[in-house]
Design a protein around this nucleic acid. Structure first.
Lengths: 233, 233
DNA sequence: CAGTGGTCTAGACCACAGG
DNA sequence: CTGTGGTCTAGACCACTGG
């Protein structure tokens, strides 16, 4: 065996990716098990495990006990999007951030919302609408419903200077959530607020977060025309 | 110390998340170092490391050598999207998949494409347009440019029965890429193909993949109105 | 049943960056 | 300089699951 030593899991990972890329290990192929690779690479099995696990997380390898490790036939591209607080998103892009509260009221939500948040239909929620601006121009419109049962102190906040977006992150813990991305046509009201033509295609994010089994907040973010989010794969 | 034993890294992770959630460790707080936690939890430091690393990957913890581990002030939500082969996406949703090739030609691309792919302006590329259908209805329109220099054998394929999407995944390796998500308005041509109204808001994915320093393919996917992609956070 | 990946341990050394 | 996380090792046992 004239394979040089691999000293760390990153170098093992690189070698594994090289073999896959070079078609030494083809899609669908079973690759050697961890113990054999450890022997070949001259390192501990733990190190090989770490490397293979990292590769598997990207979807390039399929690992199953007893069945072994295979090169994925159709590597599902896993795109990780970082959904930051809008203020940070804007400022990191080098623009000045501004915020305007548009509406704040306590009202029973439409059925679609109470259903999604699993709150009683007659239970009122806090409804906050606001506009996020970048360099003075409309950037995103936020339409949010908040369950005051989770964080009662939120009723003391008028959201005139701080966005619900930031307030919640700071004060309301959540355990899990769901995000949906879509494209929607600007309604007249949305077009007015975002200062764009009627029916403009708006990049849309719908997010709902939960604290164990209670909905914390449900929000729809509408981004102005041309907005895009990017990520490397 | 009456803390019960934590036997595996998942349980340590759960406990860490519980403390953060319960505000025992607040945003910005420095938490004990790995060695101390290992002592408290009655497990090896390696195990604590594994747990904290997992939590840090989700953005809930910030870890820095010497500075220690802190609870993130603004946990950037990391949404991982699985971009699968369209056929699988459709079939996994329980629909029948169908495919129609619309166009295939070898032609010099518009400047925007040759620039993005860093190919000479006069270098011709393979241009393939196709429609993906779910249960017989338009699902997504694919507009793709392929660099034949990377995989010359692609010129033998007419893409009448297999989509470039699948062919490339099987035959063309790539090392990295970029994905952009946005919303675009349907042009007349797009509306015709997707059988939707003019100016419909279309969820759009632009992707370009590279093999080291050579562009493999650049593709735009337009999804029909109402399409959304979701993920848990 | 048996082979594979999953994980734990104890100890060690190292790389990095804060002070 | 020193404390922290990052990683490696060798060995061990375990959990799952394919055959």
């Amino acid at each position: 065996m004239n394979t040089p030593k691999f000293r760390n899991w990153q170098s093992v990972q690189t070698e594994v990716l090289r073999r896959i890329h070079a078609r030494e290990w083809r899609p669908g192929d079973l690759i050697p098990n961890e113990a054999d690779l450890a022997l070949e690479f001259g390192c501990a099995r733990t190190t090989v495990n770490r490397a293979l696990r990292a590769v598997a997380e990207t979807g390039v390898l399929d690992r199953r006990r007893k069945a072994g490790t295979r090169v994925a036939v159709q590597p599902v591209a896993k795109a990780t999007l970082n959904i930051a607080v809008i203020r940070n998103e804007v400022e990191d892009a080098g623009h000045s951030y501004d915020y305007q509260r548009i509406k704040r009221r306590e009202i029973a939500p439409p059925p679609s919302v109470s259903k999604a948040m699993k709150t009683p239909p007659d239970q009122w929620l806090l409804h906050v609408c606001a506009l996020h601006l970048a360099d003075g121009a409309s950037y995103a419109y936020e339409d949010r419903w908040i369950n005051p049962a989770v964080v009662p102190s939120i009723l003391d906040e008028n959201f005139e200077t701080i966005s619900a977006n930031e307030w919640l992150l700071k004060h309301a813990p959540y355990t899990h959530g769901e995000i949906k991305f879509s494209a929607t046509s600007a309604t007249q009201g949305e077009a007015d607020v975002l200062q764009c033509p009627l029916q403009s295609a708006l990049f849309t994010i719908d997010r709902i977060t939960w604290d164990i089994d209670t909905a914390v907040t449900s929000v729809r973010l509408l981004f102005g025309p041309g907005h895009q989010i990017r990520t490397d794969i």
